[in-house]
Simulated scan of single mutants.
Amino acid sequence: MTQVDKALAGAAAGAAPRQWLAEFVLLGAIWGSSFLFMRIATVEFGVIATAAVRVMVATLCLLPLVFLRGVGAQFARHWKTACVLGLLNSAIPFACFSFALLSITTGLSAILNATVPLFGALVAWAWLGERPTGSRMLGLAIGFAGVALLAWDQASFKPGANGIAPAWAVLACLVATLCYAVAASATKRYLAGVPAMVTAAGSQLGAALGLALPALWFWPARLPGTSAWLAVIALGVACTGVAYVLYFRLIEHAGPSRALAVTFLVPVFAVCYGALFLAEAITARMVLCGAIVLGGTALSTGWVKLGRRR
């Protein structure tokens, strides 16, 4: 058996082969920057327009690659399913996070994004029959406890300076993470074996179609500036186009639960970007609760296992 065959066999068994570690880190760094770019773009574009332009740019990048890579026939067979998936995997979550970033920091939103594997484990259990072990159940409990502690500080429904209550922002983040979790299991169930390029392009096309009319309705009256355009283009090309090809490759080879574990890395990068470029404060509470969330997530996905007594 060749090294490639061994790697693929390990992936099929649910392990994360060494070949994918670089892609995990790269994807975490890219998605970590998405919170920074969303914050910059949303201020001028607004919530819906930011999400819409993001997926439209991604669609324009990905569709030509579908045919250049010779997977046009497979795209023709699966584009409808992928489009529906795009509403859950892109349109709704992107709009939710853009809304949330109007009132909470990029670091906090990224830590809440780390609950995706927790919801992913629950969805995979309920839908795909992937029953978690005792240590994974403990991880779920720990992870959601961390979220509760983190969200408690933002539990006020009193509108802030921008007219949005922090609690609504937290709930929007959790709706987004639940959508990601459902979409991951749906990808495994309905698009297993479909090339990542096809799934990525189809999902972005579906998100673009779903957000087109709302974006026209909510388009900003004042033309956004250069920095906002650069931010939304970076969101579309790097954080969506490139990132989703990597993401669907990971789902295909490592399974939805393990692919979602890339969100372990996202808060680390997002908090660093926010501190460096937006001068956001990193509080002790955020670090502690974030560690609890990530620890619970690691247990719930099986990346960390409790030792057995002998």
Rank of each mutant, 00 (worst) to 15 (best):
Ala7Glu: 01
Gly10His: 00
Gly10Val: 00
Ala13Lys: 01
Ala15Gly: 07
Pro17Tyr: 01
Pro17Ala: 02
Leu21Gly: 06
Val25Ile: 14
Val25Ser: 05
Trp31Lys: 01
Trp31Pro: 05
Phe37Ala: 13
Thr42Pro: 14
Val47Thr: 14
Met56Val: 14
Ala58Pro: 14
Thr59Lys: 02
Cys61Lys: 03
Cys61Trp: 07
Leu65Glu: 08
Arg69Gln: 15
Gln74Lys: 15
Phe75Pro: 03
Ala76Cys: 04
Lys80Thr: 11
Thr81His: 09
Gly86Tyr: 11
Leu88Val: 01
Pro93Thr: 12
Pro93Leu: 10
Phe94Leu: 10
Ala95Asp: 12
Ala95Trp: 03
Ala100Glu: 02
Asn113Gly: 03
Asn113Glu: 01
Val116Ala: 15
Val116Ser: 14
Pro117Ser: 10
Leu118Gln: 04
Phe119Arg: 06
Ala124Gly: 09
Thr133Met: 14
Gly134Asn: 12
Met137Asp: 00
Met137Cys: 11
Ala145Pro: 01
Ala145Val: 07
Val147Arg: 11
Ala148Glu: 09
Gln154Glu: 10
Ser156Gly: 09
Lys158Asp: 14
Lys158Pro: 09
Ile164Arg: 07
Ala165Asp: 11
Pro166His: 08
Trp168Phe: 13
Ala172Cys: 10
Cys173Leu: 03
Leu174Ala: 07
Val175Ser: 11
Val175Lys: 02
Thr177Val: 08
Cys179Arg: 03
Tyr180Val: 03
Arg189His: 09
Leu191Lys: 12
Ala192Tyr: 01
Gly193Leu: 14
Gly193His: 11
Met197Thr: 13
Met197Lys: 10
Ala201Phe: 04
Gly202His: 13
Ser203Pro: 09
Gly206Pro: 07
Leu211Val: 12
Leu213Phe: 12
Leu216Pro: 11
Trp217His: 13
Trp217Lys: 07
Trp217Asp: 08
Phe218Leu: 10
Phe218Arg: 08
Arg222Trp: 01
Ile233Met: 03
Ile233Ser: 08
Ile233Arg: 05
Gly236Lys: 11
Gly236Trp: 08
Gly236Phe: 05
Ala238Thr: 09
Thr240Glu: 01
Gly241Glu: 04
Arg249Lys: 14
Leu250Met: 15
Ile251Thr: 02
His253Val: 07
Ser257Thr: 15
Ala259Cys: 12
Thr263Val: 02
Val268Met: 00
Val268Glu: 00
Phe269Gly: 00
Tyr273Asn: 00
Phe277Met: 14
Leu278Asn: 00
Arg285His: 15
Arg285Leu: 12
Leu288Asp: 03
Cys289Arg: 10
Gly290Met: 02
Ile292Val: 15
Leu294Phe: 00
Gly295Ser: 06
Ser300Phe: 04
Thr301Gln: 13
Val304Ser: 12
Leu306Asp: 03
Arg310Trp: 06
